[in-house]
């Protein structure tokens, strides 16, 4: 697999559905090594689901996903947990362990997967916390942190084991502009200084476009557009254009599918 060396993730013919609703219908997607790839789309199009499929927390109905040249379907439960160490994931809510302090949260993956002496764990944890600018908060509990700090600690935890790839699930949601700026800078910096492949799932157009090398636009169970941010901005495809310019109505309707408005209002008479 020569592709494996240059693409960290390869998705071929992926289909996934919940109940009768198709979330993905036969999509192909590649994430090159060492790049920042943005995956964007309106809310509810299954962007988070895609990350969970890559992390194999969900099983696809059809198609295959290669992570670093390994087909996830071929792995046993044990091997899968091993393979996941290559991936870090930043969850939407941060998902810090609420019963552990900031320090212990970051130390957790290191303690689990290595047998390093305590002094070394301490050094690594402080290095990671320093990277996200929260070394001073090491003794706090997650409940004492603001939302933005929460996410930065979670990021420190996600990179604790130096993963080859970090997946960011809606990192900008619910953040004030300063926290958002900090996160944007962090993601770019981690990518540049450590060469971490990054997947950013978001619907925040400008932030995502500003840090991504490549963008995928997902809607209607498929990929409606892909390319470098600038190319997409100038795209003439109507759906891409609507999303990239933030128009309220267009091919992606403002209204949730419903019966005819008029007949619904006059429904009693019919």
């Amino acid at each position: 697999m020569s592709e494996a060396s240059e693409n960290f993730i390869e998705i071929r013919g992926l289909s996934f559905s919940r109940g009768n609703r198709a979330i993905f219908d036969n999509i192909d997607l590649t994430i090159p090594r060492g790049k920042v790839v943005g995956i964007m789309g309106p809310s509810g199009t299954g962007k988070t689901t895609l990350l969970r499929l890559i992390g194999r927390q969900l099983r696809a109905d059809a198609g295959s996903i290669y992570v670093d040249g390994q087909n996830l379907d071929d792995l046993s439960r044990e091997e899968l947990f091993k393979a996941r160490r290559k991936m870090g994931m930043l969850f939407q809510s941060g998902a810090l362990f609420t019963d552990l302090s900031v320090f212990e949260n970051v130390a957790f993956p290191i303690r689990i997967h290595t047998k390093l002496p305590e002094a070394m764990i301490r050094d690594i944890v402080f290095m990671k916390l320093e990277a996200v600018g929260l070394r001073g908060a090491w003794s706090l509990m997650p409940a004492e942190l603001s939302g933005g700090m929460n996410r930065r600690v979670a990021l420190a935890r996600a990179i604790a084991l130096d993963p080859a790839m970090v997946m960011y699930d809606e990192p900008f949601v619910g953040q004030d502009p300063i926290a958002m700026g900090v996160l944007v800078k962090l993601i770019r910096m981690l990518n540049e200084s450590l060469g971490i492949t990054s997947v950013v799932v978001s619907h925040d157009l400008h932030e995502t476009a500003s840090i991504s090398d490549y963008l995928y636009l997902i809607a209607d169970a498929g990929i409606i557009g892909q390319g470098a941010p600038d190319d997409l901005m100038n795209s003439t495809e109507p759906r891409v254009k609507q999303f990239m310019n933030g128009l309220s109505d267009g091919p992606v309707p403002f209204h949730y599918p419903a019966e005819d408005y008029r007949s619904a209002l006059l429904g009693q008479e019919n």
Binding site: Q57, M89, F91, A95, T98, I112
Partner: peptide
């Protein structure tokens, strides 16, 4: 609900 279980899985802990 707070994704702690998912996050454990992604850290590589069952």
């Amino acid at each position: 609900t707070t994704e702690q279980l998912s996050s454990l899985e992604m850290i590589g802990v069952d």
